[in-house]
Structures are given as structure tokens and as C-alpha cells.
Write a protein that binds this DNA or RNA. Structure first.
Lengths: 168, 168
DNA sequence: ATAAACTTTCAATATATTTTGAAATTTCAG
DNA sequence: CTGAAATTTCAAAATATATTGAAAGTTTAT
């Protein structure tokens, strides 16, 4: 397979993959292209290679920068901005975990805390089921929270070295 | 907070949560309602309590059954089917991990294997970056794959007992 | 200070996804 | 069998999400 085709296929499937994870197609595709490109690209490069509009490119680049996955790069002698992606996939995954944890897990745990406090007779079958379910999810979420915090702080060597022994 | 309101809030936020994870709102809401309800519910119960149409209810119940998250229940003396959700959140998460791994991770790893074989001079800056990125993701994915297989097979006591020691 | 180059915004448009509901199909008690 | 009850299907409609592109805003070299 030629590099050009391989790139296209990688971009397409990274995009499809992203949509299963609440990330929009273009954002995932911009990320994919920057991941497999050695040199920084300008907004116009991205627009051209992915066939997307100026506004779309701009919005998704900014979103990727917000996530910490992409950085602006100054190229000496060039007026316009260039962009490059963090290439270390362990760092990338830690950044994604960090961001999603903040946006999704943390608010959910906060809500569950409130919902546990439902009024009424705890012996009531329906109240009991509600409280049990909510408490169960809360406990699970707290374990996940701790685990993810550790992973976010870890580096690859720790991850592969110590933790992976657990997983054969 | 009253039970009814607490349920509504739980359902709403579980639904919103789901949409960040590539699961449609209704499917997550049906799941949520069944999770906090002690007794099995019929399709009509779900339609009424969630204000959704017959077709929508039917489709999403079946999808949840496909995932193994919901079971049909025969209620003696009743003609129609009733449904109940697996309540053990550890089992629930293992079912979800298993299904998403099969649908998403496994196909991605297969693709990456092919893409590694890109033609051309491996010294070329652009080819090198492509191969390096793809290889890195592949390796990462394989670690994740092993880890998830272990988690899928594990039970809660192992998870909490042995693994969680790692995470404070 | 000017103006060209570049970036950002956002209302309008296009696309994708979800939901509806009525019709077709299946199930089952009598 | 029969037909009422229940389930499933799916084209059309509604909703939600993503994309465009032109205008407004900003930056920078001279």
C-alpha cells in the first residue's frame, strides 16, 4: 500500500472510531492527519488535505488545542500558524483520560451524591432499589476515579513495567 | 428529594452521559429506568414513563438485550413480555467493555496491522512518521486489549482486592 | 497609519441521527 | 383454526449535529 492511501485509510477509520467516542468526525480526522505527519501543517494544509472549510478547520483545531492534543508551532519566516500533534500515544491517552474525567466522570459523581439522599422509607422496595443502584454506581465511579488519577500521573515505564504484570 | 424526581434526574443525566459515549439517549434512558426499578417493566410501562413511541421503545430494548444489559422476563399469567436490567454495576461494566472491545478495538487493531506494511523507504521522514505512529498505536492497543480481556474475565473481588491496591 | 495576511465568528445550510406511528407480522388462548 | 393481543418493521418526519463561507476582527510588516 502506498503512503498516500495508507494515510487516507488511517484518517477515515480514526474518524469513524472517534464518532463512537463522542468526538466529531472532523476533529478526529484533523488529529489523525497531524499524528501521521512529521512536519507541522497550516490551517490551509488541513483544509486542502481533508477537504474541509475554513471555519470547520479552525473550530476543530482549536478544540484539539483545548484538549492539549495539538500545539501551535511558530515556523520562522512564516506569517501563518502551524500545528503539530503530540505523537506519544501514552501521553495522548493520558490527556484524553484527564479531559473526559473532568468533563464527565466528576460531574456524574457529584450528581450521584445528591441522588443518594432521596427521601422516604429505606425499607420500601422501590426506594431501596434506587438507593442501592445509585450507591453501587457511586462506589464504582469512585474506584474508577482513583484509578484514572493514578494513570494520569503515571508515565509509560510505570504503566508497562508495574501495572502490566497484572495483565499477563 | 422525592423518589420520582430523583428517578427523573437520574434518567436524564444517564441519558446525557450516554450520548458522550456513542450510545443514543433513549437507549441510555431505558437502561437507567430499568436499573433503578426493582420490578420488571413492560414495553408499555417504558413508553409511558419515558414518553417514547412504541417503535423507539422496541428498538432500544432489543439493542440493550443484544448488549446483554437487559433480559426478557416471563411474568406468570401475563401475555406480554417484561424486561429487567442487570443490576450489578461491575457485571454491567464488564458487559459494556466486552461489547465495545469487540465492536471497536478489535477491528482497529486489525486495520493497524495492515497499515504498518506501507511501501517505500523506511528512512523517508514521512514514511517513518507514519509507521512509527501506527506501530505505537498498535502496541498501545494490544496492551489495552490484554488488560481488558483480564478485566472482562475478572470478578469484583479480584478487581477490588488485587488490582485496586495499585491505585491507592 | 495602512493594508494585506491571517484568524475567528456565526447565521444559514447541509448532513446525520433519532423518533414516530401505522402497517405487517407473529404469538397464543380459546 | 380464529382473532385479539403483542411485537416488529420501516418509510417519513422531526430533531440534533456538523459544516460552510462570507463578514468581522485581529495581527503584523512596512
Amino acid at each position: 500500500m502506498k503512503l498516500t492511501d495508507a494515510k487516507l485509510q488511517f484518517i477515515a477509520s480514526w474518524g469513524a472510531f472517534g464518532t463512537h467516542w463522542g468526538i466529531n468526525r472532523t476533529m478526529a480526522q484533523v488529529h489523525a492527519l497531524l499524528l501521521v505527519t512529521a512536519d507541522p501543517l497550516s490551517q490551509d494544509d488541513l483544509m486542502e488535505q481533508l477537504n474541509i472549510s475554513r471555519g470547520n478547520a479552525n473550530m476543530n483545531i482549536r478544540e484539539l488545542i483545548d484538549w492539549g492534543l495539538v500545539d501551535r508551532v511558530i515556523v520562522p519566516g512564516e506569517r501563518k500558524e502551524f500545528f503539530t500533534a503530540e505523537k506519544d500515544i501514552w501521553k495522548v491517552s493520558r490527556l484524553i483520560i484527564k479531559e473526559r474525567k473532568k468533563r464527565e466522570l466528576d460531574p456524574m459523581l457529584k450528581l450521584l451524591d445528591q441522588l443518594k439522599e432521596v427521601e422516604g422509607d429505606k425499607k420500601d422496595r422501590n426506594i431501596k432499589q434506587f438507593v442501592d443502584t445509585v450507591t453501587g454506581i457511586k462506589r464504582f465511579g469512585e474506584q474508577a476515579d482513583k484509578m484514572l488519577d493514578t494513570v494520569i500521573r503515571a508515565d509509560e515505564s510505570w504503566f508497562v513495567g508495574s501495572l502490566m504484570k497484572f495483565f499477563k
